[in-house]
Design a protein around this nucleic acid. Sequence first.
DNA 1: GGTCGAAGTTGACGGTGTCAACAGTGTTGG
DNA 2: CCAACACTGTTGACACCGTCAACTTCGACC
Lengths: 204, 204
Amino acid sequence: MEELSPTSAGTRALLIQAAGRLIDEGGPGALTLRAVAALVGISHNAPYRHFADKRALLAAVAEDGFKQLQATIARETASAPNAWAALLALVRAHFTFARTRPALYRLLFSDPELTAATDGAVEREAMATFSRVGALIRKAQAEGVLPSADPLRLTGLFYATLHGLADIELSGRAREAKGFQTVEEIALLQLNLLRAAATAPSGR
Amino acid sequence: MEELSPTSAGTRALLIQAAGRLIDEGGPGALTLRAVAALVGISHNAPYRHFADKRALLAAVAEDGFKQLQATIARETASAPNAWAALLALVRAHFTFARTRPALYRLLFSDPELTAATDGAVEREAMATFSRVGALIRKAQAEGVLPSADPLRLTGLFYATLHGLADIELSGRAREAKGFQTVEEIALLQLNLLRAAATAPSGR
DNA sequence: GGTCGAAGTTGACGGTGTCAACAGTGTTGG
DNA sequence: CCAACACTGTTGACACCGTCAACTTCGACC
């Protein structure tokens, strides 16, 4: 793995970038403070000038990762002609992100180190991602294609389904259970069932 | 933390038990091979006589953990008068398990070390847990309280929702997003919407 | 032009997973 | 009956990791 360009940006940004690359290419085990420093081309202790902690660097990577996830969602759903198509695009975008960068995805959603930190910026970006999904859900409700339940709860439900499916696929267990052949199929099943419920009376 | 009884069971079982205790009481960071050995009262290298690897010990803990999760589900759903009540009990059991032993839950579902291992026994128990949920889903379909979609896919959907909700709650983000006030509420919303879809025609 | 603070370096420490070599010990085959 | 052997456990070492402390550079600012 070659060094990152040394003078282009601030060292702090370079560290975040290098950490993202390490976790993408070698999994969470490869994300070592010393390896990050070496990749940037500074000594093993220099990162402490920019991050108090390994956890702080992880938090910065996570903040950046959530922003990228939001950008991906925004890009993929932008051209959808209606709310239903946007939801389908959201499903595709979410799973593609998780599959393309599995270790980063796990860092964002399921890393216990990060979870314990509750760094303000990370939580803000996580919430922003959630809100973006919420907007799509609300629009779909307005178009009558999703049931008229409490939008926040419905968003929570759909978001949790999306994450649960992605996480299980990342665990490798979706292969063996035939019910999981394609998580996209199951997400689609969820959407179709929700739409069906939208036409029934007792959907709250 | 006091030592485990030295003579009661085989050392291997003691190691698994000690590891489970460490991860429950101190999180995944506390689960150290040397700490496990010390807790059992043997030297730091003795565990290698029973497990090839730290990952192998983790796998044994996970296998045991899945069995306990299955037992919990079986116990809680046994007394349910009908399939609907059983599903409600399943929801309660799953969340209670995740909340009571968060680090173990993360090990079972979202640990990258374990995920990469694909130890046969762990996957078998994970599948058995999934199957147990599948049986409840099928029964609920037979009682007309869930839509008649492909049972495997429907199980995958419900299981993923359950896991997604539990994982997000463990991440601590369910607090901030008001939509997540209680994951039980959202699981209930899922069940109610599915039931509503069961009476609509297009639920497949 | 001298001061000061930020950024980086070297060196050390304890802790962790893992390997290698050795020691006791109970079972078994000749 | 005793020697060979497979288990289980011990001690010691190694490389790697996160982190702390002390020292060096060096550019900006009064």
